[in-house]
């Protein structure tokens, strides 16, 4: 049965409302050949890993794989669909590992955990570090890392 539990939009959450340790999981998304072809066209990255089916038959992957950055961008999109949007002012940076291939037809989803929070010199904002794990349909970790976000504090 289709369940919308946990998918209620909750609006933008301020720094004070975000708890260290809170975890969320996004809906899944199936990565298609179309996604890869469009991403190659948009980015201009035509590496054989993503575009040459014959070459890739003989590679360790056995077939074309998605661009690592396509997976990164899709998980960023999935973050908006966890229903837990922060009052983010800026995307400060990320540390990221590409652990395994995303193949055509794989369904990926994002699991996030708030790793830490810290105040900054400015009273209207704080830094939030979010650990992110991208899993495929077999629960294998295909990408993981952490992103640092500057989040607005609740207006006084």
């Amino acid at each position: 049965m289709l369940s919308y539990a946990g998918m209620t939009p909750s609006g933008r959450r301020y720094f004070e409302e975000i708890e260290v340790g809170e975890e969320f999981e996004s809906p899944g998304r199936t990565v298609t050949e179309t996604d890869i072809v469009l991403f190659a066209g948009l980015s201009g990255d035509y590496n054989v890993l993503h575009t040459d089916a014959e070459f890739m038959k003989k590679s360790i992957f056995g077939e074309r794989i998605a661009h690592g950055l396509l997976g990164l961008a899709i998980q960023s999109g999935l973050f908006y669909r966890t229903g837990r949007v922060f009052a983010t002012l800026a995307f400060v940076g990320l540390k990221w590992k590409f652990k395994g291939p995303i193949k055509i037809g794989d369904t990926i989803r994002l699991r996030t955990r708030v790793a830490s929070k810290r105040e900054t010199g400015k009273t209207d904002r704080g830094l939030v570090v979010v650990e992110r794990t991208v899993l495929n349909q077999r629960d294998e970790v295909v990408q993981e890392g952490e992103t640092e976000l500057m989040v607005e504090r609740r207006p006084a």
Binding site: R29, D35, L42, G77, Y80, R81, L89, F91
Partner: peptide, 12 residues
Amino acid sequence: LYSGLTGDAAVE
């Protein structure tokens, strides 16, 4: 094109 493809958007 990027937003449609990935569902990603600017935080700023």
